[in-house]
Amino acid sequence: MSGRKSTQATVRICGASSLSKTSWVCAFAVPGDNKATAHKIKARDVDRLISILNSSKTKAEHQLSRPLRIVLCYEVGYDGFWLARLLMARGIRTVVFDPASFLMPRRGRRAKTDRLDAEGMTRTLRTWLSGDREVARDVLIPSVEQEDAKRIERERKYLVEERTSIVGRIKGLLALHGIWLNGKRIGKRLLERLDIMKTGDGRPLAPFLRRDIERMLRHYDFVSQQIEEVIAERKAALVDGLGRFPHAEKVQRLATLGAVGETTATVLVAEVYHRSFETRRHVASFVGLAPSPYNSGDTGRDRGIHKAGTKLARQTLVELAWFWLRYQPNSKLSLWWHERFGGMGMRGRKVGIVALARKLAIALWRFVEQGVVPEGATLKV
Results as ranks from 00 to 15, higher is better:
62 H>I: 11
75 E>T: 04
64 L>T: 08
49 L>G: 03
72 L>P: 00
59 K>Y: 09
48 R>C: 15
85 R>H: 09
80 G>R: 01
62 H>W: 08
84 A>M: 03
50 I>L: 14
85 R>G: 07
66 R>I: 02
74 Y>T: 00
70 I>N: 08
54 N>D: 13
62 H>T: 13
68 L>K: 04
59 K>P: 13
55 S>M: 04
68 L>I: 05
66 R>E: 15
80 G>Y: 01
54 N>I: 09
82 W>G: 02
74 Y>A: 00
62 H>M: 13
78 Y>N: 10
65 S>V: 06
69 R>H: 11
48 R>G: 14
73 C>Y: 04
51 S>L: 13
71 V>C: 15
76 V>L: 03
80 G>C: 00
52 I>S: 07
76 V>Y: 06
74 Y>R: 00
52 I>C: 09
51 S>K: 10
59 K>M: 12
66 R>M: 10
59 K>I: 12
79 D>G: 00
51 S>Q: 11
58 T>F: 04
64 L>C: 09
75 E>D: 14
75 E>I: 05
78 Y>I: 10
64 L>I: 05
70 I>C: 11
69 R>P: 03
52 I>N: 07
71 V>S: 14
51 S>D: 15
57 K>D: 11
72 L>Y: 00
55 S>L: 04
75 E>V: 04
53 L>I: 14
78 Y>E: 11
81 F>N: 03
55 S>I: 02
53 L>S: 13
78 Y>M: 07
83 L>V: 02
56 S>G: 07
83 L>I: 03
67 P>N: 06
59 K>R: 13
84 A>P: 00
80 G>E: 00
73 C>P: 12
66 R>V: 05
60 A>P: 15
84 A>E: 05
81 F>R: 03
60 A>I: 07
50 I>W: 15
84 A>Q: 03
82 W>T: 05
81 F>S: 05
76 V>W: 05
52 I>V: 14
67 P>K: 00
83 L>C: 08
70 I>P: 10
72 L>H: 01
78 Y>R: 09
63 Q>T: 07
71 V>K: 11
86 L>C: 06
